[in-house]
Design a protein around this nucleic acid. Sequence first.
RNA 1: GCCCUCGUGGUGAAAUUGGUAGACACAAAGGACUUAAAAUCCUUGCCCUUUUGGGAGUGCCAGUUCGAGUCUGGCCGAGGGCACCA
Length: 844
Amino acid sequence: MERYNFKTIEEKWQKFWDLNKTFKTQRNINKKKFYCLEMFPYPSGKIHMGHVRNYTIGDVLSRFKTLKGFNVLHPMGWDSFGMPAENAAKQNNQDPRTWTENNIKTMKNQLKQLGLSIDWDREISTCSEDYYKHQQKFFIEMFNKGLVYKKENYVNWDPVDETVLANEQVIDGKGWRSGAVVERKKLSQWFFNISKFADELQNELDNLDGWPNKVKTMQQNWIGKSFGCEIEFEVIGDSKIDKIKCFTTRPDTLFGFSFLALSIDHPVSKLYENDQNFLEFKEKCSKTGTTEESIANAEKIGFKTKLKAKNPFDEKQTVPVYFANFVLMDYGFGAVFGCPAHDQRDFDFAKKYNLNIKTVVKPINEKDSFKVTDEAYSGQGTIINSKFLSGLKAPGESVIETIKILEEKKIGRKKINFRLKDWGVSRQRYWGCPIPIVYDEKGSYKAIPEKYLPVKLPENINLNIKGNPLSSVDKWCKIEIDGKSYFKETDTLDTFVDSSWYFLRFCSPKNEIEPFNLDDVKYWMPVDQYIGGVEHAILHLLYSRFFMRAIGYQNDNFNLKEPFKGLFTQGMVCHETYKDKDNKWRNPDEVETADGKNYFLKSDDSHKILVGPSESMSKSKKNTIDPEKMINHYGADSVRLFILSDSPPEKDVQWSDQGMLASYKFVQKLYLLNEKMLKLIEKEKKEDSLKLSKFINQYLNKIEKNLANFNYNVIIANIHEAYSFFYKLSNDEINFTNLKNDYSKFLITIMPVMPHLASECLERLNMDSKSWPNLNKKYLIEENVTIVVQFNGKKRGTIEAIKNVSEQNLIKDIQNSKLFDKFLKENKIKKYFYVKDRLINILI
RNA sequence: GCCCUCGUGGUGAAAUUGGUAGACACAAAGGACUUAAAAUCCUUGCCCUUUUGGGAGUGCCAGUUCGAGUCUGGCCGAGGGCACCA
């Protein structure tokens, strides 16, 4: 029998799909839509296994939904602005656009080889002018609505590369490229006012039923809503300062007040701008590392001012005012009221500077004489030593009561604070969307009028210079608007902006005039299922949610708030890591093993290789498997099958050569089965189909449930079971009246996973492959059941019975059966518990 | 430090949501076919027993229940997120 030649057959079907535009989608009001979207890739060169997994999962869903009769939108595009293009360009002296477009060509080809059901007519690329010109309009719209502003902000500044670094580009306080110690520098930057929507972004998370809880809690923590109040403290000691505002969540501990701590950037620092000691202190603060842990673990230090703050509940009490390194300027008001007994940071600070520690909350089971000694107590309890607040339950009741009193006395009021900060979108880079703003010679800025848009990126520029590349192109920077000359903004937009609305663009990708057509968006949006890595749980997903609200702000035509109805975060693809004698990483291709334990270098079989733990595939650790090689060697269907087989899609999966090979063999076996089935179906002699109908319907029931719940590893198991069933038939040459029909139902169910093979088999059977088979529930009902028999909770056997057997009859059958003699002979049935048609537990 | 998730054979994992633990696969061992190998197929899978059987068993310790991988409390371990957020 002929082997399955995946090369010619996969090519055949891919060509067929291309020529027939099988996956082309159009708006159709009469059909129910389904928008399936995977996070679009950055065109870095070649696709990796992570892409294979991501897009296979999405493709299984798309194809399943199409078969189920939905009008499915399944597009693909390129997140094609970004640093790697610029870096590659510098290294190879190549234009970022050429580099990017070449990569896109390669990767598109690779994706096509995977047999994905994508409507390629909707392909978009964020670095094309067609795309970013619309983004510039969004920017101006937001600018006009006051959702964009410019402010001075601290950034990570790399003094060697003369550029701003993102937090993740700072490694141990050094720039990831230059290795230079990163400085904190104040720069004027563009911001999106995302914090304006903080409250609704947080609250409306609750409506996202289709999102994993994990992602929702991550966003919740990120937004960080906290309830408390602001308090104005009266300050004495300098005539220029009479009040300092603080935010606190624990106003109820005000009687434990022992100092006031200010950020070094607090306006009060103006008083000390010429004080040498203060400047030294400030210098010391900026030196305590830039990594997050080092900041968190740094010793708490302070600088005592001449100021004193009054306790609003006790005018006689005054406390010292310090500058302290642990107070952040951009949260609250950059000032903290210190209550050492009930806040660990304040406690550490008070110990260091010998400040008063007064206990004002006691745990519920403690006496009133309870005193904080070794560490702060921040748990629940009762207020003590606090005059009119004493006896209240803390923190709940006591906080609300205290705020009420502060509001009456007009020294404070209720306030909700958020951790979320505005989104800085300025990047000092070339390869991004230009910001459509101009400056006059005085430095005041305005949006570029529509008729001068879009602002196009200049081509052929020299990137091998320090600093912002665009500002070095004098000709480009100058622009004349209505006869007046201006300078263009030379920063470009963060690439997260590009990906904050691309899913809208897919709805009308060819629209020249508008970013999208409203009717298209109304039909297709929201994305029904969004699929991608959990690493985007916060930023990308939050920014996209913000962007929808920003478009809809002061715009009654657009009321889409949540872009992604369903979200699925897939796990990573992992592989063992290999190191050679010189402690260098080695690719799996370079090593071999005879026994699965000892590994050696292929090129030198005496060179032992150290095997490390399995980790997510990465270029830096060289533990990658090239998808293209696998596709060429085993075929797309086999690779798709393997990537789904071993683990649930939300968990990490281990790459395994044996597993890959097994999947390949299974594809071969399915094809051979099909050939045998073809012959079997031709046979004259036929048997009654009841057994077959039962099997196929039970199978359909299982696989459909598992498909709907993303249990894709289990559907592979279901397919294996069905294979075994049909294999046995073909081996025993048992033909059924309905065999052709029911068998082709099985073939349709494997279509989402192995589309080429399924299409080919169905074609050879001369059967239609357009719709998912209907389930006939009648065959799910079994008239005979196997009931588990337990004595005292232990399984002792099973018994056959007809469905819906009465308890009395079942007991009678058990008593009559010799199997259970030894349990029933000398014992009486005391009691029993019966789970209908499934199990009986008899107590003796 | 705070928050979240997860602990099931040699391995990846299933388990109708409280009812037969280990489906399906990988690896291993044994067998069939073969001159042989590859491929393919079958069997086994922890402990006691030659078998029939029986026992233990889902990280550990308790609890609820006729019955717990599943529910509750405590502990141990792994992974992830946030991190001086007042």
